[in-house]
């Protein structure tokens, strides 16, 4: 793995301030923050009234209501939280088939982490089928032929973003359901290399699987490229249907610089919004 962590951090720092995660009106759980929580809090936004019970803070007694009805009632306000954010990263070797794809994966993971932290949330990087990850030493070396959910329990009512290339030969729905269970908001970011999206007809090749090392000799002509494109389209559509069907957000990203990926894919898909 090339030691480009410094340049990755600079690229993330340059772009992360222009956007923030678009979380919508969903109620989250988390520590105190700027997002509406699922329970009563101390924000300025009124939520409801209830009868006074001893022990309630007298500052929340609605004295105007007492003047009208001589009954002590207290005002309840909306809780404001910073949602828990778990960034689930597919650390299989297929995420690093090219240097560009690997760098884009590292940039995206770090940027998602920073966007979550800017919300004041407790953000974590978790590996599919593994535990917590260190953002500074992200590597993509796992076999990844049949990934599972993170070994670390996921926090409920939080934000979960899955970063993967989604090139699995099997049905992705069981894994997605496990990753989405209990989440207030879920997004799946499919990261693909430009060559994976549109390979060039460059003749005979020996393709070496990044994960298993298996070899496959192909004659990559226009016919084969077209056939591959159809099979990839079916695979992406199946993944998109599984994500959207479970209420999540699906976005496909071609590996590029962070600014280009954010502007051309993440922002139009609603995963980000201007800061």
């Amino acid at each position: 793995m090339p030691d480009d962590s410094g340049s990755v951090r600079l690229e993330v720092a340059a772009a992360v301030g222009r956007y923030r995660l678009a979380l919508g009106s969903v109620r989250f759980r988390g520590r105190s923050g700027a997002r509406r929580g699922r329970s009563v809090g101390s924000s300025m936004e009124f939520l409801d009234f209830r009868d006074y019970v001893p022990g309630d803070d007298l500052r929340h007694v609605d004295w105007r209501s007492y003047a009208r009805s001589e009954q002590l009632r207290v005002r309840l306000h909306q809780e404001e939280v910073a949602p828990h954010t778990d960034v689930l990263v597919d650390t299989s070797a297929s995420m690093a088939t090219t240097p560009g794809k690997e760098r884009a994966a590292r940039v995206l993971a770090l940027a998602l982490l920073h966007w979550a932290q800017r919300e004041g949330a407790a953000a974590r990087l978790l590996a599919l089928g593994g535990g917590r990850l260190d953002a500074g030493s992200l590597s993509f070396v796992e076999a990844g032929d049949r990934p599972g959910p993170p070994a670390t329990p996921l926090r409920p009512n939080g934000v979960r973003v899955l970063l993967t290339d989604g090139l699995w030969p099997h049905d992705p729905l069981p894994l997605l359901r496990q990753c989405m269970a209990g989440a207030a908001r879920f997004a799946c970011v499919q990261l693909l290399d430009p060559w994976e999206l549109a390979p060039t007809a460059e003749g005979a090749l020996t393709l070496v699987d990044a994960e298993s090392g298996a070899r496959c000799e192909v004659q990559l002509d226009a016919r084969a490229v077209a056939a591959y494109g159809q099979r990839l389209q079916r695979l992406v559509e199946a993944l998109r249907a599984a994500v959207v069907g479970e209420g999540g957000t699906f976005v496909q990203v071609a590996a590029a610089g962070l600014g280009e990926m954010a502007a051309r894919a993440l922002l139009p898909a609603g995963l980000l919004e201007p800061a």
Binding site: E196, E202, A204, L205, D209, A210, E217, V218, Y228, L235
Partner: peptide, 21 residues
């Protein structure tokens, strides 16, 4: 006996229908 140019790739199953040997 061939010696072709090599390329690392993911999703090798997507090329299975076009493999030569």
């Amino acid at each position: 006996r061939r010696q072709l140019r090599q390329r690392r790739a993911a999703g090798l199953f997507l090329f299975a229908a076009d493999r030569l040997i």
